[in-house]
Write a protein that binds this DNA or RNA. Structure first.
Ligand code: SF4
Ligand code: SF4
Lengths: 162, 162
DNA sequence: AATTATCGGCACTACTTGAGTGCGGATTGA
DNA sequence: TCAATCCGCACTCAAGTAGTGCCGATAATT
């Protein structure tokens, strides 16, 4: 359905949070306290972002994560790409990586491959020109609006849905 | 990973084929003969397209499928929407259908929901303004945004119909 | 040095979705 | 009647996603 994974969404949320404290080192704990996101998952995502060099990590007691670039220079495309790979509209890769894994039987005569690549490029282009700042900005600066809502810690009570 | 399902791709292929014989009733058999697509799956997809009133089916001996509208008036958005539901970038529905199934714990304070909806709208808009005809005939330049012409770019000449 | 708060890595389970398949029945033209 | 076609339901198998557990490494604080 053309949709992002939860990982990516969590990553974006975390990054917007970091963007508000740009330069500062923020522990994952704090982000987990503000948003009802499963802690471990958040940690997992932050780790991935760190491996992609979008955030820098500091270990130890006062450790945490910090944006490695200002939010204006961080594109949505980079983030998505780091968290779930570059967008692909068609199942086959876009150009020349066709022969190996993701080859499709239809490929030699596929009438829609080229057009779909163009669509993908447009989407990709759009994401590359959308900065993290423009995601975070249109919202009012909420510093501690949610810190009260669930100060008790774990919020994982409503994950199951029988 | 933000990608279409194979079903949708097969549907698009089938539709481009139908577009070439616009108005004519074409049996699924013929499409299956032209493209190495699993027959049964193709039938499934065509059935879905039929239920969505994008193609009309004729039963019986000389039966088959036909486009119900000219290819110029069939948007990619409609097709995708029919085959896998309207695109959703975020896991939560876009606006007001939030309370039921697809509610997310983060939702009340989610900083990225609104921006993601905008992204989705742009993609959606793009798909709605892309006609099936422009997919089937990649020669006509539609909106020169994709300036990322790779090495091969518009080399598309394998639509030959034997 | 002990403690504590943080990141890091590995591996694991449960669930959802996607791809692909089978078969018998209903329609319609020859 | 016969053959070609669409129709409907249900089913298997593989892959990906969401989420979890545990323990070790690192660094500030005491
Ligand atoms: S070749 Fe055509 S059908 Fe096969 S994956 Fe690429 S776009 Fe989809
Ligand atoms: S609320 Fe935010 S996190 Fe939850 S699904 Fe919607 S966009 Fe994603």
């Amino acid at each position: 359905m053309l949709k992002l994974t939860k990982r990516t969404e969590y990553g974006l949320i975390a990054l917007t949070h970091l963007a508000q404290r740009q330069g500062e080192v923020v522990p994952a704990r704090e982000i987990g306290d503000h948003y009802p996101i499963p802690r471990r998952l958040l940690a997992e995502v932050l780790k991935d972002l760190c491996n992609a060099d979008l955030v820098a990590s500091t270990r130890g007691a006062h450790g945490g994560y910090a944006l490695v670039r200002p939010a204006q220079e961080l594109s949505l495309g980079e983030i998505v790409s780091a968290l779930e790979g570059a967008p692909t509209v068609s199942s086959c890769g876009d150009e020349n990586l066709l022969h190996g894994e993701n080859s499709c039987d239809v490929q030699p005569i596929c009438p829609i491959r080229s057009p779909l690549v163009k669509i993908k490029d447009k989407i990709w282009q759009m994401m590359l020109t959308t900065s993290l700042a423009s995601l975070a900005e249109p919202h009012k600066p909420y510093r501690s609006l949610a810190s009260q809502t669930q100060a008790n810690g774990l919020v994982k009570s409503s994950i199951k849905s029988p």
